[in-house]
């Protein structure tokens, strides 16, 4: 019997609460499910998941499928795949979503293979036709130079969703939903890859992937020291610092901070590009940001072709008063940037 689950989201959490991208998919998924009169479900793997499950319902899920086992606390592809493959075949969703995260990227292609279905990675938009429930999936290709609209010819229709492209709903603690326990037995013989060490980076700062505001420095920054000014601005805005490729190549900033085709792809609400020329390889990593601000002394710099707001000038003269004045404005507003 069909459970009328139109969308099933593979959820992730950070320190016990749902990750931003999971909330965003619940927000976007809720709207779509309502449009087609179907149910929205979330699947979580881990241990002691009740609080996260309640949070998922508050953010829009009708059904939450839980696989609880201490072995599932850390993501491992071979274990997760066995449980999720079985569960998806049982739940029979029309659409299956993951985040475009390190887990989603690692898991989704193999899951699609095992389910014998199609998959569109890194989607920035989904449009569901109400009757057929066929999803038109839009994704940037050719380093964001073009957009492709695709459909899956098989079910479930699978997509991974770029963080920041769907909008989380407000939390509503009075919403009702159903919890379902999934079989969480693990066949150890299928585990081939073992994690032997884990290194957390950026513990005391906001991670680039989740940042609502990103301050990015380019070749024109001139030195490693100059990035401290960007750190100040990022701290003030509750954001993260990134860089285009030249500062990473020069060793001014770790290459984990690189934004672009060969680095991270980000789509924050506010992207401030400082002394960044805006090569197509860099713009591929940030072009989907909601508001782009460019500060560059070259009025012909390519970055101004994509930016919403620009100031032509030397960042050394512009950033200090900009930081000072922004700080004053934010103090007057209780610290919120509205981004």
């Amino acid at each position: 019997m069909s459970k009328n689950i139109v969308i099933l989201i593979l959820g992730e959490f950070v320190k016990g609460t749902l990750s931003n991208i999971t909330r965003e998919m619940l927000g976007g998924g809720r709207e779509s499910a309502d449009n087609v009169n179907g149910r929205l479900a979330l699947m979580l793997l881990g241990d002691n998941l009740e609080l996260a499950a309640k949070e998922a319902i508050a953010y829009g899920a009708d059904d939450v499928y839980l696989a609880e086992n201490p072995e599932l606390v850390t993501y491992q592809a071979d274990t997760y795949l066995q449980i999720i493959e079985k569960a998806v075949k049982d739940v029979e969703p029309e659409i299956l979503l993951t985040g475009q995260t390190s887990i989603g990227r690692d898991l989704a292609p193999r899951l699609a293979f095992r389910l014998g279905t199609g998959l569109c990675m890194d989607c920035v938009r989904l449009d569901i036709e109400p009757i057929s429930r066929i999803v038109r999936m839009t994704r940037p290709v050719y380093g964001c130079k073009a957009l492709a609209v695709m459909i899956c010819k098989t079910k479930p229709q699978m997509a991974s969703i770029r963080p920041g492209t769907m909008k989380s709903g407000e939390q509503d603690r009075s919403r009702k939903g159903q919890l379902h326990a999934l079989a969480a037995d693990i066949d150890i013989s299928q585990i081939r890859v073992k994690v032997t060490a884990k290194v957390d980076e950026q513990m005391d700062s906001v991670s680039l992937d989740n940042a609502k505001v990103v301050v990015c420095g380019g070749r024109g920054m001139g030195s490693a020291d100059s990035f401290s000014m960007l750190e100040d601005l990022a701290r003030l805005l509750g954001g993260a610092v990134g860089a285009s490729r030249p500062p990473c190549d020069a060793g001014w900033i770790p290459s984990t901070r690189q934004i672009g085709l060969t680095g991270k792809i980000v789509s924050p609400n506010l992207y401030i590009a400082v002394a960044v020329s805006g090569s197509s390889q860099h713009m591929a990593g940030c072009a989907e940001s909601r508001t782009i601000v460019a500060i560059n002394k070259d009025p012909e710099a390519n970055i101004f072709a994509t930016a919403h707001y620009g100031v032509v000038g030397d960042y050394r003269e512009i950033l200090p008063p900009f930081i000072r004045h922004t700080s004053e404005i934010l103090q007057g507003k209780g610290g919120s940037t509205c981004y």
């Binding site: 506010l270 508001t291 601000v293 707001y309 100031v311 000038g313 030397d314 003269e317 512009i318 950033l319 200090p320 008063p321 900009f322 004045h325 922004t326 404005i329 934010l330 507003k333 940037t337 509205c338």
Partner: peptide
């Protein structure tokens, strides 16, 4: 430059 910086901050925040 300072004037431009202030106008940018006002425009954004």
């Amino acid at each position: 430059p300072e004037d431009a910086a202030i106008k940018l901050a006002n425009r954004l925040f």
